[in-house]
Amino acid sequence: MSSLKPYDAVLLLSFGGPEAPDEVMPFLENVTRGRGIPRERLLEVSEHYQHFGGRSPINDENRLLLANLREQLAAAGVDLETTPVYWGNRNWAPFTTDVLREAHEAGARRVLAVVTSAYPSYSGCRQYREDLAEALVTLAHEGRSMRVDKIRHYFDQDGFLQPIADSIREGLGSLPAGSRIAFVTHSIPDAMDDASGPDGNAYTTTHRQACEAVVSRLGLDTVPEWDLVYCSRSGPPSQPWLEPDIGDHLAALKQAGAPGVVCVPIGFVSDHMEVVFDLDTEALEIAHDLDLPFVRAATSGRAAAFAQTLAALVVERAAAERGENPDRPSKAGPGPWHDVCPAGCCANLRNPDKPAACGVDWVLPIDKPVQSGSPAPVSR
């Protein structure tokens, strides 16, 4: 059997979503707590969920990914009895703190997190790290000492890129010749992109690197034209966010005479609400009204190759922590991303001093000593 030592458990960590109509508003309040979002805006967004019976697709997608990840780790020789795989969410049940408490009660003291976000940014990385820090503080106050690390970003991995390329190729085959590709990701404030990564603008840079890598895998005689565009803007009009919006982009493509478009949700691991509403519902309706042939490519999350990539990164990180020198493949950009976040990486612009786990500057910010005989409650 293959060992994941020094890790005792793996945590699949995701965003979370409601699964019934009466859960929608409490979920949205969790997501936006402390951000001053008007209730009117929450009610507007809640209608997106009610359009699908009050149930987000994300939890079912994560249940499938959890099963696939367990299968791929077992295929890699990992003993899931001694190193179990848990699933927790930031914003809805099963909550991160509850799952880590369950893992601790089962004997886990050192956990490796797999976050369902492929790119660096505050919302895609540091905010998860902040939630992990909060969970570790809560557990430490209960006398539970744990350490949590996370795998590196995987926007540059075969198992993420190749399923997208395969789906685009299929989509182009159903559209008129000369159709274009619209890669889509979640819009964020310009200032958040400026602060993403250790040197800034990592969010847009890594997305473009992933787009380029996907296009290079299409294997077509004529390389389609492509653009990176955005969806799901939620800030006030006075605040600059990444543009253009997918709806505006579709109108521009029609005006430019594009014969069709493959819409590619490259910023999303699986079919989140932003995909099934913003793209499959709103963008599709816009394209229909424009009489613009439109196909939506699949996300990577259901592909066996994607779970295999995540399992490989888990094994890679465990080997590195044991002092070995594992291969660190990277198929997009200048090379593999860091394992441990540098100080200030993907800064929290609202609260720069908020603790975030899994970084070089993380230290458990409480005075209460942890139980003896447990690993130090820090993540590096």
Rank of each mutant, 00 (worst) to 15 (best):
5 K>F: 09
9 A>V: 10
10 V>E: 05
19 E>R: 13
20 A>R: 14
23 E>R: 15
23 E>N: 00
30 N>K: 13
30 N>M: 12
45 V>W: 05
46 S>C: 08
59 N>K: 11
60 D>E: 13
67 A>Q: 14
71 E>R: 15
73 L>I: 06
81 E>N: 13
88 G>P: 07
94 P>A: 08
103 A>S: 12
103 A>Q: 07
105 E>M: 14
113 A>Q: 06
118 A>N: 10
119 Y>S: 07
120 P>A: 10
121 S>E: 02
121 S>K: 02
123 S>K: 07
124 G>N: 13
131 D>I: 12
132 L>D: 05
137 V>C: 12
141 H>I: 08
142 E>Y: 03
143 G>K: 06
146 M>D: 00
169 R>D: 02
177 A>G: 04
177 A>L: 12
180 R>V: 15
182 A>N: 05
182 A>P: 02
190 D>R: 14
190 D>K: 10
196 S>A: 12
197 G>D: 02
202 A>Q: 09
206 T>C: 13
210 A>V: 09
213 A>D: 02
216 S>R: 12
225 E>A: 15
226 W>K: 01
229 V>W: 05
229 V>A: 02
232 S>P: 09
236 P>C: 00
241 W>Y: 12
241 W>R: 03
244 P>S: 11
245 D>E: 08
246 I>C: 14
247 G>T: 11
257 G>F: 09
264 V>Q: 04
271 D>L: 01
272 H>S: 06
273 M>N: 08
278 D>K: 03
281 T>E: 14
291 D>N: 14
295 V>M: 05
302 R>I: 00
305 A>L: 09
308 Q>R: 15
317 R>P: 01
319 A>D: 12
325 N>Q: 15
326 P>W: 08
333 G>T: 02
341 C>A: 15
342 P>Q: 07
344 G>W: 09
345 C>I: 05
352 P>K: 08
353 D>I: 09
356 A>C: 10
359 G>T: 14
361 D>A: 05
363 V>A: 13
369 P>W: 04
369 P>T: 07
375 P>W: 05
376 A>E: 14
378 V>R: 13
